[in-house]
Nucleic acid binder design. Structure first.
Lengths: 115, 115
DNA sequence: TATATTTGTAACCAAATTGTTACATAAATA
DNA sequence: TATTTATGTAACAATTTGGTTACAAATATA
């Protein structure tokens, strides 16, 4: 792979991680994630679960698709959405950074102030 | 505890979880989290790490404080921020819901379409 | 005490987000 | 073939977000 391509790929990946955090920021989208996690489901069936209009739900789904959190499989005129775990793992990886602090339970502020 | 109080407490907790997701949605705020994770740090020192103005950083910090992701300890005119892991764990708990899907590796869409 | 430092906040602006209704299109069905 | 169904999208409005500059207040320091 060309170095330039590599940089682009890295950037694309970085952008994707950004989008995942934005995507899960909205409670409606987290509910949609819950729905598609149970079983693949088409877009109208998802929209039935919300008070808002279908186009509004459709927009949320677009965000989820862009983030890579859900995938889509066209079946005639239906589009079935399914959960894509890979994107969710990005969040898990991000959390791993802070695992160290979970393990070492010292009160870091206290420690610092004693100096 | 009164049932009404319990409901309020539950709601408060629910709101807090919401805020945590909103808080980590912004890349600047995730950078701030990284800074305070290393060691308690005062607000000006945080702002030095960014191109944007101090009040802009201050606003981000307000969001982080409201979300419970960081705590603050006043020391004279300085305010030292520190990471509060409890709020980050809310995200970890949320992710746990989907752990099942990590373990059972079956392609659920494929499964569904066969029916 | 006068000055410098750390911080908060108000007033403002531009852009993004989140919703709406109206309409278009393609596929399935009567 | 005519109609229903599933979906996308454009145009719009309200709200939120993320930034700015200007100013105030409290604490530390010369």
């Amino acid at each position: 792979m060309e170095e330039e391509d590599f940089d682009k790929e890295l950037n694309r990946l970085f952008e994707e991680i950004m989008d995942v955090f934005k995507a899960i920021a909205d409670p409606t989208r987290r509910s949609i994630i819950d729905l598609v996690a149970v079983s693949p489901i088409n877009i109208n069936a998802i929209a039935e679960n919300f008070v808002m209009s279908r186009p509004a739900v459709s927009k949320h789904i677009k965000v989820l698709l862009d983030s890579g959190l859900v995938g889509v499989e066209q079946q005639g005129r239906d589009r079935f959405l399914f959960l894509q775990l890979k994107a969710l793992q990005e969040v898990q990886f991000w959390l791993k950074k802070y695992e160290y602090f979970w393990n070492t339970k010292l009160d870091r502020l206290d420690d610092y102030l004693k100096k």
